[in-house]
């Protein structure tokens, strides 16, 4: 038998073959099963990720809140009274009130803190005050220096935030229009 005869014979082989049993029942059963949504597992994963982020954020917040005294406060003898921008601007009454209130809380908070924490707070406040002093000195020489003004404002913000963390009060943070 040559190739041509073989191919002719192959072309005569049955192409359609009836199965020995009806296969529809199995197919019907399969297609009647509820289709598992592809979105369901994806949504579950997204929810799990959100939960994880939420849990992590909460834990981080709690940890930071609990350990925040690390960046914390001072005794009245360390209170920094200078609150101005060079010789041209002074801080608004809102800021002064907030700071005075926080300072009043400071001694109470120090009683609850360990000596090490108190030392840390004093150091931080001293650094902030030194920076503020230096900036004010510079601003007296160059009152129109907006970059310096912004940096000074940031330092006041830092000071207030530090006092807030120590005293546990929630006051409004100083805004630029408080000046």
């Amino acid at each position: 038998m040559n190739d041509e005869e073989l191919m002719r014979a192959a072309a005569r082989l049955a192409r359609e073959i009836r199965p020995e049993r009806d296969l529809w029942a199995g197919i019907e059963e399969a297609i009647n099963e509820p289709v598992a949504s592809r979105w369901r597992p994806m949504l579950a994963q997204a929810a799990a990720v959100l939960l994880l982020i939420g849990a992590t954020s909460t834990i981080t917040y709690m940890a930071v809140k609990d350990t925040s005294p690390r960046a914390v406060v001072t005794t009245p003898d360390m209170i920094f009274e200078r609150a101005s921008f060079g010789n041209r601007y002074t801080l608004g009454p809102g800021f002064q009130d907030a700071r005075n209130g926080l300072v009043a809380e400071l001694n109470i908070e120090f009683d609850r803190l360990s000596p090490e924490a108190e030392e840390d707070i004093r150091t931080n406040l001293t650094m902030i005050h030194t920076a503020i002093n230096n900036m004010n000195d510079e601003l007296e020489k160059d009152p129109g220096n907006t970059l310096l003004q912004e940096q000074l404002l940031r330092m006041y913000h830092e000071e207030l935030a530090l006092l807030r963390r120590v005293s546990g009060l929630s006051r409004n943070v100083m805004m630029r229009n408080d000046i």
Partner: peptide, 13 residues
């Protein structure tokens, strides 16, 4: 199912 009946022999083949 009607499509199945039409094509099963060829598919099974």
């Amino acid at each position: 199912e009607a499509l199945y009946r039409l094509h099963i022999d060829r598919v099974y083949g």
